[in-house]
Amino acid sequence: MEIPYTTTARPDTGLWNAKIGIWLFLASEVMLFGGLFSAYIFLRLDAAPGHWPRGLLNVPVGTMNTAILIASSVTVVLAWAALKMRQFSKYKFYMGITILCGIVFLVVKLAYEWPIKFHHFGAKITPAALEKYEPYLGNAHLREGGYEPRVEISGHLENPEALHDESIREYHIKLDAANAEPLNPDNDRPRFWPAPMSDKIAHVSKDDVQLASMYVPKHSTFFATYFTITGLHGLHVLGGVIVFIYLWLPVSARLYKRNPEQLANRVEVAGLFWHFVDLVWIFVFPLFYLL
Protein backbone atom coordinates (compact mmCIF):
# COMPACT_ATOMS: atom_id res chain seq x y z
CA MET A 1 0.00 0.00 0.00
CA GLU A 2 1.28 3.42 -0.94
CA ILE A 3 0.07 6.67 0.57
CA PRO A 4 -0.31 9.33 -2.10
CA TYR A 5 1.40 12.70 -2.08
CA THR A 6 4.23 11.86 0.30
CA THR A 7 6.79 13.50 -2.00
CA THR A 8 4.81 14.96 -4.84
CA ALA A 9 2.33 17.74 -4.40
CA ARG A 10 -1.39 17.15 -4.65
CA PRO A 11 -2.52 19.24 -7.60
CA ASP A 12 -5.36 21.14 -5.96
CA THR A 13 -3.48 22.04 -2.79
CA GLY A 14 -0.04 22.32 -4.35
CA LEU A 15 1.48 20.72 -1.26
CA TRP A 16 2.80 17.37 -0.17
CA ASN A 17 1.56 15.80 3.03
CA ALA A 18 4.37 16.51 5.44
CA LYS A 19 4.43 20.15 4.47
CA ILE A 20 0.85 20.54 5.61
CA GLY A 21 1.56 18.40 8.62
CA ILE A 22 4.46 20.52 9.78
CA TRP A 23 2.56 23.75 9.32
CA LEU A 24 -0.32 22.40 11.36
CA PHE A 25 2.12 21.30 13.99
CA LEU A 26 3.71 24.74 14.00
CA ALA A 27 0.26 26.27 14.35
CA SER A 28 -0.20 24.28 17.51
CA GLU A 29 3.27 25.33 18.63
CA VAL A 30 2.28 28.94 18.13
CA MET A 31 -0.61 28.33 20.47
CA LEU A 32 1.65 26.55 22.96
CA PHE A 33 4.14 29.38 23.17
CA GLY A 34 1.20 31.76 22.91
CA GLY A 35 -0.10 30.29 26.14
CA LEU A 36 3.27 30.73 27.79
CA PHE A 37 3.76 34.26 26.56
CA SER A 38 0.26 35.23 27.61
CA ALA A 39 1.21 34.00 31.07
CA TYR A 40 4.31 36.15 30.82
CA ILE A 41 2.29 39.25 29.95
CA PHE A 42 -0.23 38.50 32.62
CA LEU A 43 2.27 37.93 35.40
CA ARG A 44 4.39 40.86 34.42
CA LEU A 45 1.46 43.26 34.32
CA ASP A 46 0.33 41.87 37.62
CA ALA A 47 3.69 42.08 39.38
CA ALA A 48 3.94 44.47 42.30
CA PRO A 49 6.47 47.31 41.83
CA GLY A 50 9.98 45.95 42.09
CA HIS A 51 8.86 42.36 41.82
CA TRP A 52 9.65 41.92 38.14
CA PRO A 53 13.46 42.12 38.29
CA ARG A 54 15.44 43.40 35.34
CA GLY A 55 19.01 43.12 34.29
CA LEU A 56 19.61 39.78 35.96
CA LEU A 57 20.60 37.93 32.82
CA ASN A 58 23.91 38.10 31.03
CA VAL A 59 23.28 40.18 27.91
CA PRO A 60 26.54 39.55 25.99
CA VAL A 61 26.10 35.81 26.37
CA GLY A 62 22.45 36.06 25.37
CA THR A 63 23.38 38.11 22.32
CA MET A 64 25.95 35.54 21.33
CA ASN A 65 23.44 32.74 21.65
CA THR A 66 20.99 34.70 19.54
CA ALA A 67 23.63 35.09 16.87
CA ILE A 68 24.38 31.38 16.99
CA LEU A 69 20.74 30.48 16.46
CA ILE A 70 20.41 32.91 13.58
CA ALA A 71 23.54 31.50 11.99
CA SER A 72 22.14 28.00 12.29
CA SER A 73 18.94 29.14 10.62
CA VAL A 74 20.99 30.36 7.70
CA THR A 75 23.01 27.18 7.45
CA VAL A 76 19.96 24.95 7.57
CA VAL A 77 18.37 26.77 4.70
CA LEU A 78 21.67 26.54 2.82
CA ALA A 79 21.77 22.82 3.54
CA TRP A 80 18.33 22.46 2.03
CA ALA A 81 19.32 24.56 -0.98
CA ALA A 82 22.40 22.37 -1.48
CA LEU A 83 20.20 19.30 -1.58
CA LYS A 84 17.90 20.96 -4.05
CA MET A 85 20.92 21.57 -6.25
CA ARG A 86 22.00 17.99 -5.63
CA GLN A 87 25.27 18.90 -3.92
CA PHE A 88 25.37 16.28 -1.24
CA SER A 89 28.75 17.06 0.32
CA LYS A 90 27.78 20.70 0.69
CA TYR A 91 24.60 19.55 2.34
CA LYS A 92 26.59 17.50 4.84
CA PHE A 93 28.82 20.47 5.56
CA TYR A 94 26.03 22.94 6.23
CA MET A 95 24.03 20.44 8.19
CA GLY A 96 27.08 19.70 10.30
CA ILE A 97 27.45 23.39 11.15
CA THR A 98 23.77 23.59 12.02
CA ILE A 99 24.11 20.70 14.41
CA LEU A 100 27.16 22.28 15.98
CA CYS A 101 25.36 25.58 16.45
CA GLY A 102 22.46 23.83 18.13
CA ILE A 103 24.77 22.00 20.48
CA VAL A 104 26.75 25.12 21.35
CA PHE A 105 23.52 26.95 22.09
CA LEU A 106 22.42 24.22 24.46
CA VAL A 107 25.79 23.96 26.16
CA VAL A 108 25.93 27.69 26.79
CA LYS A 109 22.46 27.54 28.24
CA LEU A 110 22.83 24.44 30.37
CA ALA A 111 26.47 24.57 31.36
CA TYR A 112 26.87 28.30 31.83
CA GLU A 113 23.76 30.46 31.98
CA TRP A 114 21.52 28.28 34.12
CA PRO A 115 24.09 27.06 36.67
CA ILE A 116 25.41 30.54 37.28
CA LYS A 117 21.90 31.52 38.26
CA PHE A 118 21.44 28.51 40.48
CA HIS A 119 24.45 29.69 42.50
CA HIS A 120 23.25 33.23 42.93
CA PHE A 121 21.28 34.23 45.98
CA GLY A 122 18.62 36.81 46.68
CA ALA A 123 16.71 37.78 49.81
CA LYS A 124 13.51 39.70 49.34
CA ILE A 125 12.99 42.15 52.15
CA THR A 126 9.61 42.46 53.85
CA PRO A 127 7.90 45.82 53.26
CA ALA A 128 8.29 46.69 56.93
CA ALA A 129 12.07 46.30 56.85
CA LEU A 130 12.77 48.10 53.60
CA GLU A 131 13.69 51.25 55.48
CA LYS A 132 16.20 49.37 57.64
CA TYR A 133 18.12 48.15 54.59
CA GLU A 134 17.94 51.42 52.73
CA PRO A 135 21.78 51.64 52.60
CA TYR A 136 21.75 48.57 50.40
CA LEU A 137 18.62 49.42 48.44
CA GLY A 138 18.78 53.13 47.74
CA ASN A 139 15.07 53.42 47.21
CA ALA A 140 14.93 57.14 47.96
CA HIS A 141 17.40 57.66 45.14
CA LEU A 142 15.46 55.41 42.79
CA ARG A 143 12.17 57.12 43.60
CA GLU A 144 13.73 60.43 42.66
CA GLY A 145 14.77 59.07 39.29
CA GLY A 146 11.31 57.60 38.71
CA TYR A 147 12.54 54.01 38.83
CA GLU A 148 10.88 50.99 40.39
CA PRO A 149 12.03 50.23 43.92
CA ARG A 150 14.58 47.56 44.87
CA VAL A 151 13.11 44.97 47.18
CA GLU A 152 15.90 42.45 47.16
CA ILE A 153 19.43 42.11 48.44
CA SER A 154 21.35 39.74 46.26
CA GLY A 155 24.78 38.32 45.69
CA HIS A 156 26.75 35.31 46.80
CA LEU A 157 25.47 33.54 49.88
CA GLU A 158 28.50 33.14 52.17
CA ASN A 159 26.74 30.92 54.68
CA PRO A 160 24.65 28.52 52.60
CA GLU A 161 23.87 26.47 55.73
CA ALA A 162 21.52 29.30 56.64
CA LEU A 163 19.12 28.15 53.99
CA HIS A 164 18.31 24.99 55.91
CA ASP A 165 19.45 25.62 59.45
CA GLU A 166 16.72 27.35 61.44
CA SER A 167 19.12 28.22 64.27
CA ILE A 168 21.15 30.52 62.02
CA ARG A 169 19.23 33.76 62.01
CA GLU A 170 21.13 35.71 59.37
CA TYR A 171 22.10 35.49 55.76
CA HIS A 172 25.62 36.69 54.94
CA ILE A 173 25.54 38.00 51.42
CA LYS A 174 28.52 39.09 49.37
CA LEU A 175 26.79 41.88 47.55
CA ASP A 176 26.03 42.46 43.92
CA ALA A 177 27.17 45.82 42.59
CA ALA A 178 23.69 47.29 42.74
CA ASN A 179 23.32 46.56 46.44
CA ALA A 180 26.89 47.55 47.20
CA GLU A 181 26.57 50.96 45.60
CA PRO A 182 22.85 51.58 45.37
CA LEU A 183 23.31 55.26 44.72
CA ASN A 184 25.62 54.84 41.74
CA PRO A 185 23.56 55.99 38.74
CA ASP A 186 25.14 53.24 36.62
CA ASN A 187 23.14 50.80 38.67
CA ASP A 188 19.80 52.48 38.08
CA ARG A 189 19.23 50.65 34.86
CA PRO A 190 20.41 47.29 33.58
CA ARG A 191 23.89 47.26 32.07
CA PHE A 192 25.29 45.53 29.05
CA TRP A 193 28.41 44.09 30.69
CA PRO A 194 27.46 42.57 34.02
CA ALA A 195 29.02 44.58 36.84
CA PRO A 196 31.53 42.66 38.92
CA MET A 197 30.50 41.58 42.38
CA SER A 198 31.73 43.73 45.28
CA ASP A 199 33.65 42.53 48.34
CA LYS A 200 31.13 43.99 50.74
CA ILE A 201 29.23 41.54 52.86
CA ALA A 202 25.82 42.37 54.23
CA HIS A 203 24.12 40.66 57.15
CA VAL A 204 20.41 40.27 56.60
CA SER A 205 18.23 39.05 59.41
CA LYS A 206 15.85 36.26 58.55
CA ASP A 207 13.06 38.12 60.32
CA ASP A 208 13.27 40.81 57.67
CA VAL A 209 13.19 38.42 54.74
CA GLN A 210 10.02 37.62 52.88
CA LEU A 211 11.52 35.00 50.65
CA ALA A 212 15.09 33.79 50.45
CA SER A 213 15.93 31.85 47.38
CA MET A 214 18.68 31.03 44.97
CA TYR A 215 17.98 32.25 41.45
CA VAL A 216 15.85 29.22 40.68
CA PRO A 217 12.29 29.13 39.29
CA LYS A 218 10.85 29.54 42.73
CA HIS A 219 12.60 32.91 43.22
CA SER A 220 9.98 35.00 41.43
CA THR A 221 7.44 34.89 38.66
CA PHE A 222 10.20 36.33 36.50
CA PHE A 223 12.50 33.37 36.96
CA ALA A 224 9.55 31.00 36.87
CA THR A 225 8.62 32.15 33.38
CA TYR A 226 12.26 32.47 32.33
CA PHE A 227 13.17 28.92 33.24
CA THR A 228 9.92 27.46 31.96
CA ILE A 229 10.01 29.20 28.60
CA THR A 230 13.74 28.78 27.99
CA GLY A 231 13.50 25.20 29.24
CA LEU A 232 10.73 24.36 26.84
CA HIS A 233 12.55 26.22 24.12
CA GLY A 234 15.69 24.26 24.95
CA LEU A 235 13.76 21.03 24.60
CA HIS A 236 12.73 22.15 21.14
CA VAL A 237 16.34 22.88 20.26
CA LEU A 238 17.31 19.46 21.53
CA GLY A 239 14.56 17.84 19.47
CA GLY A 240 15.70 19.73 16.39
CA VAL A 241 19.33 18.70 16.92
CA ILE A 242 18.36 15.06 17.26
CA VAL A 243 16.39 15.16 14.03
CA PHE A 244 19.24 16.90 12.26
CA ILE A 245 21.73 14.34 13.47
CA TYR A 246 19.47 11.63 12.10
CA LEU A 247 19.31 13.45 8.77
CA TRP A 248 23.08 13.78 8.74
CA LEU A 249 23.97 10.18 9.55
CA PRO A 250 24.74 7.64 6.78
CA VAL A 251 21.03 6.80 6.41
CA SER A 252 20.67 10.16 4.71
CA ALA A 253 23.22 9.17 2.07
CA ARG A 254 21.23 6.04 1.32
CA LEU A 255 17.99 7.97 1.08
CA TYR A 256 19.76 10.54 -1.09
CA LYS A 257 20.75 7.86 -3.56
CA ARG A 258 17.30 6.38 -3.65
CA ASN A 259 15.18 9.52 -3.61
CA PRO A 260 16.99 12.85 -3.22
CA GLU A 261 13.76 14.81 -3.40
CA GLN A 262 12.41 12.99 -0.39
CA LEU A 263 15.52 13.82 1.61
CA ALA A 264 15.19 17.44 0.56
CA ASN A 265 11.60 17.42 1.70
CA ARG A 266 12.56 15.99 5.06
CA VAL A 267 15.23 18.61 5.50
CA GLU A 268 12.74 21.28 4.54
CA VAL A 269 10.26 20.09 7.14
CA ALA A 270 12.89 19.84 9.85
CA GLY A 271 14.17 23.22 8.76
CA LEU A 272 10.74 24.79 9.11
CA PHE A 273 10.64 23.53 12.67
CA TRP A 274 14.11 24.90 13.30
CA HIS A 275 13.23 28.34 11.96
CA PHE A 276 10.23 28.38 14.23
CA VAL A 277 12.45 27.63 17.21
CA ASP A 278 14.67 30.49 16.11
CA LEU A 279 11.63 32.72 15.75
CA VAL A 280 10.52 32.01 19.30
CA TRP A 281 13.97 32.89 20.55
CA ILE A 282 13.82 36.20 18.72
CA PHE A 283 11.04 37.12 21.14
CA VAL A 284 12.46 35.40 24.18
CA PHE A 285 15.74 37.26 23.99
CA PRO A 286 14.50 40.84 24.32
CA LEU A 287 11.62 39.94 26.64
CA PHE A 288 13.84 38.34 29.24
CA TYR A 289 17.31 39.78 28.71
CA LEU A 290 16.69 43.32 27.66
CA LEU A 291 13.32 44.84 28.40
Binding site: T13, M31, S38, F42
Partner: peptide, 20 residues
Protein backbone atom coordinates in the same frame (compact mmCIF):
# COMPACT_ATOMS: atom_id res chain seq x y z
CA UNK B 1 -3.72 26.62 2.35
CA UNK B 2 -0.80 27.44 4.60
CA UNK B 3 -1.93 31.05 4.78
CA UNK B 4 -5.40 29.93 5.73
CA UNK B 5 -4.10 27.82 8.59
CA UNK B 6 -1.89 30.63 9.81
CA UNK B 7 -4.56 33.30 9.63
CA UNK B 8 -6.77 31.35 11.99
CA UNK B 9 -3.89 30.57 14.28
CA UNK B 10 -2.85 34.20 14.43
CA UNK B 11 -6.38 35.24 15.20
CA UNK B 12 -6.73 32.80 18.03
CA UNK B 13 -3.35 33.55 19.52
CA UNK B 14 -4.25 37.24 19.54
CA UNK B 15 -7.49 36.37 21.29
CA UNK B 16 -5.39 34.55 23.84
CA UNK B 17 -3.18 37.58 24.44
CA UNK B 18 -6.20 39.75 24.65
CA UNK B 19 -7.58 37.55 27.39
CA UNK B 20 -4.54 38.12 29.52
Amino acid sequence: LVYQILIFTTFFVLVLFWLT
